[in-house]
Amino acid sequence: MVNYLATVVVTLKQVVNDPQGLTVRSGLRQLGFEEVDEVRVGKHIEVRLSAENEKAARARVSEMCRKLLANHVIEDVRFQVEQQDAQVGASR
């Protein structure tokens, strides 16, 4: 089995109003960042897992997103899967 790190990013769909993003945008503008057009606030989730190979890891993470990590009524989800070097991880 190989160790993987999945980085999952969950954001509200474009059609869903994002009041947090609007508030952050207005804060940035007040700080002088007038060039800011839009801010969307989302979630960053790190999942460490083991799998036979990257394809299997991706399939499992995709299922996790579908079943729990995102609510598909309101959220979009995307993720990356990277192989982790177990020895480097242990020496830190």
Partner: peptide, 9 residues
């Protein structure tokens, strides 16, 4: 449907 953050934050 779903319940999201109040628009007034």
């Amino acid at each position: 449907g779903a319940l999201i953050r109040n628009d007034v934050c």
